[in-house]
Write a protein that binds this DNA or RNA. Structure first.
Lengths: 241, 241
DNA sequence: CCTTCGCCTTGACTTGGATCAACCCTTTTC
DNA sequence: GAAAAGGGTTGATCCAAGTCAAGGCGAAGG
């Protein structure tokens, strides 16, 4: 017990600075006293890629903040067809407030660090700190905007537009202010199979479209992971954004 | 001015009972005094089918509750391809709190009655009535769940599964408790073109799939509008829900 | 009454992306 | 260090859904 607290007395401020930075974390909304209170029930966990954080139809009894890495939110049909319905980056919040059970699965797409806390203690704090409820409300609205953007992609875009949209999404996530005519490079946080599940395509189609972008001189790929986009503006035009 | 108040002194309680009924409206969260205050700035409007309530990239300066009819939320690509990203029924709330401009278009799919109020007065009330903010938070989370459900449909389901899912969605909206092996009938609130835009298909494909369901004896259609589903359970199986 | 218009259906044909299959790297394992 | 396993690519073929085109039907309007 003492150990736990020691860990968190040193870790929490770091976490909170991270949350604050992008105005989406939970901790930035709390007073120092509330932070100490929350930290008493907090556990920081490393999760390896592929591990499941929350499973479909589980009862949810904890929330988490993503500290590092990428978490994919998925839905699966009875016959195994899968769709990624959201990607959570640091410092996003994972969990479904005001509901006992989850309708989606949360799975680590890369190695992930999360800061988890029991639902009950956060729920209690929501009623005490209105600013915290407001943060969660903002994140929900943000995720709703993202989900609807993606619905347009899934419903109406071609395979090549989808792949370009995906690269653009990841690129922007690393550097939202990137020059629209500049070069940018980043590591893909997803495998081809994940990308396919995100785009509603097959891995073969994703692979072919990436090859096409490579041959057209828009991107370079190293080790199947590291991508350089030579001209963000051209990519945007391909993505029809 | 006197006229306006007269209208609303009589109309508001009705509206609020409607909102209360399904726990998603705005008015149920307010005290009688706040209701009176809000009603001072409220206008009730009839909107004919096809009229645009909020246009993409407009600055939003009002919110609305749907009182009757169906509102479609759409996104459109530069070349005209369109996707419906949400359907709002009574007593849903329309508007994007905490943001100056909309990224989607809201358009009346049927004849619609709405109760509109200026953003500023509702925003003021949110800070005074935490219960109101909580309602809006709940609706956002609800819409997020719906959007993610639909992402699975758009990304991974076949045309016939999509059409079955759509019928199921509309059927359930009229009667969420319908027996899963019972018969149910309802009016489609959307044209074939709208259905296609909702499902990410073409009108011809929607038409063919409806014909198939008819020939298979799962549904009957009158006047292209009124649908009877003979066995909700069978429909669910088709929809892969 | 006939014409026009909006909406829907149906048929013929085309095609983008899925499927099936082979193969190529790395990395891991024994 | 050979074998197996886990990604990724590429090619050949197929098919579900898109496109194009014709026509039906009811409502609106002269």
């Amino acid at each position: 017990m003492a150990v736990r607290q020691d860990i968190h007395n040193s870790e929490i401020p770091v976490l909170c600075r991270a949350c604050e930075a992008r105005h989406r974390g939970v901790c930035g909304a709390l007073t120092p006293e509330q932070l100490v209170e929350l930290s008493r029930h907090t556990t920081k966990r490393k999760v390896e890629a592929g591990a499941v954080l929350v499973s479909d139809s589980d009862t949810i009894d904890s929330y988490a903040n993503v500290l590092a890495g990428v978490v994919k939110l998925t839905k699966t049909l009875p016959d195994g067809r899968q769709q990624i319905v959201g990607l959570q980056f640091a410092p996003d919040f994972i969990g479904r407030p005001f509901k006992r059970e989850s309708s989606i699965t949360a799975e680590a797409a890369t190695a992930v660090r999360v800061c988890a806390f029991p639902k009950t203690s956060l729920d209690r704090m929501i009623s005490q700190a209105p600013e915290l409820g407001h943060r969660l409300h903002l994140q929900a609205l943000n995720e709703l905007d993202e989900a609807r953007d993606w619905m347009l992609t899934l419903g109406r875009k071609t395979a090549s537009e989808r792949v370009a949209s995906f690269l653009h999404l990841i690129a922007r996530h690393g550097d939202p202010e990137a020059e629209s005519d500049g070069e940018i490079s980043f590591d893909l946080p997803l495998t081809r199979a994940d990308i396919a599940d995100f785009l509603g395509l097959t891995i073969e189609t994703v692979s072919r479209q990436l090859t096409k972008l490579r041959k057209d001189g828009l991107i370079a790929v190293e080790n199947n992971r590291h991508v350089t986009v030579f001209d963000v503006g051209k990519l945007e035009r391909r993505a029809n954004i």
